[in-house]
Write a protein that binds this DNA or RNA. Structure first.
Lengths: 225, 225
DNA sequence: CAATCATTCAATTAAATAATTGAATGATAG
DNA sequence: CTATCATTCAATTATTTAATTGAATGATTG
């Protein structure tokens, strides 16, 4: 292989990786998988895609090196190949936020409008958790919560929110988080709880970012109060 | 716009950015543009693409927010929209290097084989430059050199190499660099100079990475000796 | 070991992208 | 103000990708 061919082959491989990120459905699937190992059918359901279509997209992501999979009984479980995939996704978001006018519009016009207060940074939240000054709620579905969550976080989905208000403190700050920077669940939760008069803010990013930052994580203990 | 729609619109935008990186020609064009502002025809020539095709690819990169352009006389000059684009490209390379078997093969089998010695890191090179212990050569074409280069670097292209050997020190280490981690020019230069007995290594990455790291850069002074 | 279940594969159709050609634009130079 | 030059645009063709359907695989359960 000549130098030129080696370089071309490399660039073709890089392009394959980039191409695998080049579809909204695949980006959404990656967001789901980033919460923890998941089967094809649960991903299909969550993304609202057909089964076979989901399988194809996942296969493409696996071939590009972004996902890996293993057989578990009769299911196939997919997970991120590597935490560097999260860094790549974060960088992709960052470039789009800085350079794409439409993204700025959507973020300013929709996400900011819905959350007038500054979101809480990871470091700030960690500090407040240590001081016992905050109640953390995880608004993702229960299976994602079980696969890993912030230490001591309550798992309260949007659907349960109204009937579980009694579990929330009226006098302490509440911080809600979900899957990532643009996961809408925590925005909705914040809006709903503010309407009830709670003092609540969003965590800036989601669970995967918290985990790769090396911050403490808890698994498999379901807390209900 | 509902939450779901806003999220979907965002992911579609992110996918557009990723898609624009999803072609080897566009990645190569980005590598060239990263050296400095360039006109469409010079990019077309360097990439070995037709004029119109190059223009289309550049337009796509501009629409995705990775490039911007300005008119200069009758030429249109393209440049990176932002230094964060380089971070995104670096992250793409990193993920591919870690997770794609073919990439590992090419890198180990071709690039490493051609350069048995450890490449020099930016920090190490900077230190040696300060101590005057090293001669730095920039093996890119002269126009890229003129748009910016390492302080004091000699511009010696592969073609000129043999007739300019006298300018190189026999007793001091030489470090060669070019456009980036997989730019083949510096590999070739190192191989050629080693054959002549020079003590020469490659800089790990290229000029753009040096610049965005905030290290000193020199422009427009052509040094010939 | 037959039935079931989760997933993948293969074949099809629809849609998007890439490259080429030639015409259109828009700036500059004579 | 016409000719020239660099670039973009529009139209075409070829190629690739996406989604759907139904069949095939391969592990598990009774």
């Amino acid at each position: 292989m000549s130098s030129e061919n080696a370089k071309k082959a490399l660039f073709t491989q890089f392009a394959t990786v980039a191409k695998s990120l080049g579809h909204a459905h695949r980006l959404e699937l990656l967001e789901f998988v980033a919460q923890g190992e998941r089967s094809v059918d649960s991903l299909a359901e969550r993304a609202g895609l057909s089964f076979a279509n989901t399988s194809q997209h996942l296969r493409q992501l696996r071939r590009a090196g972004l996902l890996s999979s293993r057989q578990d009984g009769k299911r196939v479980l997919y997970r991120l190949a590597d935490d560097s995939v999260l860094d790549l996704l974060a960088e992709l978001r960052r470039v789009a936020e800085r350079n794409v006018a439409e993204v700025k519009q959507i973020v300013d016009g929709y996400f900011h409008e819905r959350d007038a207060l500054e979101p809480v940074s990871r470091e700030e939240l960690l500090e407040r958790m240590r001081q016992g000054l905050v109640t953390v709620i995880d608004v993702r579905p229960e299976d994602e919560y079980r696969a890993g969550h912030l230490p001591g976080a309550l798992n309260i989905t949007l659907r349960d929110l109204e009937v579980r208000l009694a579990e929330l403190p009226g006098d302490q700050e509440i911080v809600a988080y979900c899957r990532g920077a643009y996961c809408v669940l925590s925005f909705e939760a914040v809006a709903a709880l503010r309407a009830y008069g709670f003092n609540v803010r969003r965590l800036e990013e989601g669970f995967p970012e918290w985990r790769v930052a090396g911050l403490p994580v808890e698994t498999n203990s379901v807390r209900n109060s």
